[in-house]
Design a protein around this nucleic acid. Structure first.
Lengths: 256, 256
DNA sequence: AAGTGGTCTAGACCACCGC
DNA sequence: CGGTGGTCTAGACCACTTC
């Protein structure tokens, strides 16, 4: 047996433990996907090709690929091949992701009012959240999302220019800010915090709601390779929006 | 090779597809855990024992057990054995689970005021939620949970007597209702809905808060084997409680 | 030393797909 | 038909824990 890039688990050398071979294959592929070398829909090498590349057995390659499927990073079709999965609609958790498609799935109209897009000096909370210096330049976008003409979300988003330099060139009436980021700066970590708040007078006006009525405030931060990408505050009139999820114990969450 | 309970994948018989062997082993073990035959902490048969029991190879048994680990149903320790995992603190999602231990982990005092425990006729919403007839008898419990003496949650819970006949016999100043249920009626499905609401005057009084301030309302329903177990509404003053979660793409959620 | 799980191999058979 | 993934086997070596 010949071992190429991998150091054999059977080697007599007193090396450090050395990552499991299947883990090395997983890492190799995950890196290619993460850094953009392989894009969504691209075809991966077949199991047999990987067997030759790494000089390991097919069972080991198979395990690596199987676990990548289960993490949602690749898709496999028997008789056809393995492919890089489409970017996941946000994290596995709060499926707030794709507000637009969620609304359309209900058979309703979706629209987006862009209130402002530009470059601002990072206020303290944003600087802290995105790991920037106070006053450093950040992209900012504010939109109202409407379902059948009724505002359901006020999106207040800050984006790190380092991670998404092309952000301002988008037409956000066509592509949602979140959509653009998911497609172009895939993240690998996300943090969600859910709060209940009363809107400010201004927020109440923009959401066309009574400012004495409560809102759900979802704050999300995402990271790519350890670097913050974006921080967004989504304000939802509670009377028009709620978060829900459903889980089965046999493994996979079922959203509804 | 002899095949016991499993029908061989290699059999010449034109049987229906037949579940994968590793899946049969998974199901077998999952069922034992689900129906209570094997309780949390119990030792599972070793890989070699399962090899003999099922008449299949160790790799196949290993895969079954590995996937059960990853689903959080069992825990394995090299050189020691495999064990049934502790009941998961609720679903994988909203980690609201164990309010008491969460509070204690912060180094704070936890206390519970039991406002009432008893048997009531199911109102319409409860009957619908628990799949009961209108007016059918259900258990009801209401508690206020306190952190350092300050109310952080008003718990309003309904429990199906069919699924948890011993519910009323508990001392809920000692054991939280949720704790009792997790231990005695393990669920396999859960549904969460998060809302923002203003408390009623009564709720505001019980939570010792200003009734013009918003609350997070978490409604949870759980099922065991397809039958509803409990429906609980947890009302949290937003100023004292928020929901949060953090996820990494490499598989496992990291709560914080 | 005996038992456990963790990993790996070099084959194998199968169902399926696309040509 | 050849290629793909899905599954399975009967061995193996290892590090580890327990006795």
């Amino acid at each position: 047996m010949s071992v190429a890039t991998a150091s054999s688990a059977k080697a007599a050398q007193p090396e450090p433990p050395a990552l499991a071979l299947y883990q090395q294959v997983k890492d190799h592929i995950a890196r290619k996907i993460q850094d953009g070398s392989w894009k969504a829909g691209d075809r991966l090498p077949s199991e047999n090709e990987l067997v030759l590349q790494f000089g390991i057995s097919r069972m080991t390659v198979n395990r690596a690929l199987r676990e990548l499927v289960e993490q949602g990073r690749i898709v496999r079709v028997a008789g056809v091949g393995s492919f890089v999965a489409e970017a996941k609609p946000q994290s596995t958790l709060l499926q707030i992701a794709h507000l637009a498609s969620e609304i359309r799935q209900r058979g309703h109209d979706y629209a987006c009012r862009v209130l402002g897009v530009g470059r601002v000096a990072a206020p303290m909370d944003v600087a802290a959240a995105l790991d920037l210096r106070l006053g450093e330049s950040v992209f900012h976008a504010m939109c109202v999302h409407l379902e059948n003409g009724v505002p359901v979300q006020l999106e207040d988003r800050y984006v790190s220019p380092r991670m998404a330099p092309g952000f301002l060139q988008q037409d956000f009436t066509q592509v949602q800010p979140s959509e653009y980021l998911v497609r172009n700066v895939p993240f690998d970590q996300a943090e969600h915090v859910v709060d209940a708040v009363l809107p400010t007078a201004e927020q109440g006006r923009l959401l066309e709601m009574d400012a004495t009525q409560p809102c759900l405030l979802l704050t999300r931060r995402t990271w790519s390779q350890g670097t913050p990408v974006t921080m967004v505050r989504c304000l939802h009139p509670a009377s028009r929006y709620r978060l829900g999820s459903r889980f089965r114990a046999d493994g996979n969450p079922v959203f509804g």
